[in-house]
């Protein structure tokens, strides 16, 4: 018989190995940054470890972690937006006296045209499209994870594609 701690560690390893790659991919596509994706995945798994009760199976664990990740990414985006506004304000002020400021500190990596277009989408549309395209999830599953109806998922997926096609029209043609 396995020691309780040992069996729990095996369970954690199973969850981690099965879900991390997907979670990282979704996090990267939602945030547009590999380092932010890594931070958010780390934070999501910390919450999973600290969770007092076990989840019934791997699928439920996956949905739970994606839900946590979505909330974390939303908070992170709000925080980044506030910081960007503060930097822009500072830049306008500094421009009157200093040479043009290099705001490379805001971008931690070079993003592709496609990822740049995804980043332009509102968080609510981007999340649905990312879960559909990169998470391979059905409308029902997405609705369950995000706490919205299947009809709402359908509308959001359509609108996200419409906007994305518009943003990428030069690349698409």
């Amino acid at each position: 018989m396995l020691h309780e701690g040992h069996s729990e560690n095996l369970l954690f390893e199973k969850v981690y190995e099965n879900i991390y790659p997907l979670l990282f991919r979704i996090a990267y596509r939602i945030t547009g940054s590999a380092s932010t994706a890594e931070d958010l995945c780390h934070e999501a798994f910390v919450k999973y470890i600290e969770r007092s009760e076990l989840l019934p199976d791997l699928d439920q664990t996956k949905y739970w972690l994606i839900r946590v990740l979505r909330n974390l990414s939303l908070n992170s985006e709000k925080r980044r937006s506030r910081e960007n506004r503060a930097y822009q304000k500072y830049e306008r002020y500094a421009r009157t006296t200093d040479p043009p400021a290099d705001h490379g500190f805001l971008e931690d990596e070079t993003r592709s045209v496609v990822q740049g277009a995804l980043d332009e989408l509102p968080h609510s549309l981007r999340t649905v499209l990312v879960l559909k395209e990169y998470g391979q999830m059905s409308y029902r599953e997405i609705g369950k994870v995000l706490g919205i109806s299947e009809g709402n998922v359908k509308v959001r997926a359509f609108r996200a594609r419409e906007r994305l096609a518009e943003l990428l029209k030069e690349t698409l043609s």
């Binding site: 990267y28 798994f45 990596e109």
Partner: peptide, 25 residues
């Protein structure tokens, strides 16, 4: 075409982040 564009877009390798996070956790 849009789907092909999304799936053809390069992604960062998750393995280094996977190992670092596992170590930290």
């Amino acid at each position: 075409s849009l789907r092909a564009l999304l799936h053809g877009d390069p992604e960062p390798e998750h393995q280094p982040a996977f190992e670092r996070t596992r170590e930290a956790l």
